[in-house]
Computed example of a mutant assay.
Amino acid sequence: PYLFTLVYVITCYKNPFSVTGAPGQCPDLCHCHSDLLHVICFNVKLKKIPRVSETTQLLNLQRNNLGNIPTGAFSDSKGLISLHMQNCQLREIGSQAFKGLTKLAYLYLSNNEITTIKPGAFEDLTGLTYLYLDGNQITELAKGLFSPMINLFILQLNNNRLRELRPGTFTGAKDLRWLHMANNTLTTLQPGSLDEVENLAILHLDGNRMATYPIAAMSKLRVVEELTLSRNPMKTLPDLAFQSFGRYMERLYLDNMGLEKFSDGAFTGVTAIKSLYLDNNRLRTLPRSLEYGTLTNLTLFNNPWTCSCSLAPLKKWMDTTRIRTDALCASPAQQKGRQVRDSSAFSSCRPKQKKNRGKTKGTRQ
Rank of each mutant, 00 (worst) to 15 (best):
E54I: 05
T55G: 01
T55Q: 09
T56Y: 02
T56P: 03
Q57M: 12
Q57D: 11
L58P: 04
L58F: 08
L61N: 04
L61K: 03
L61T: 02
N64V: 02
N64Y: 03
N65C: 02
L66Q: 00
L66A: 02
L66C: 05
G67C: 03
G67Y: 00
G67E: 00
G67W: 03
N68L: 01
I69H: 10
P70H: 03
P70I: 03
P70V: 03
G72F: 00
A73R: 08
A73C: 12
A73L: 06
A73Y: 03
A73Q: 09
F74N: 09
F74R: 06
F74K: 10
F74T: 15
F74I: 08
F74A: 09
S75R: 14
D76W: 02
D76A: 03
S77M: 05
S77L: 02
K78G: 15
G79T: 09
I81F: 06
I81Y: 06
S82K: 07
S82L: 11
L83H: 05
H84V: 11
H84T: 09
M85H: 04
M85Y: 02
Q86V: 05
N87T: 04
C88G: 00
Q89L: 00
Q89M: 10
R91N: 12
R91P: 02
R91F: 03
E92L: 06
I93E: 15
G94L: 00
Q96K: 14
Q96E: 14
K99R: 14
G100N: 02
G100R: 06
T102Q: 15
T102A: 08
L104N: 04
L104Q: 13
L104Y: 09
L104V: 05
A105R: 15
A105S: 10
A105K: 12
Y106I: 09
L107N: 14
L107R: 13
L107T: 14
Y108P: 07
Y108C: 10
Y108R: 11
L109C: 14
L109N: 12
L109V: 15
L109I: 13
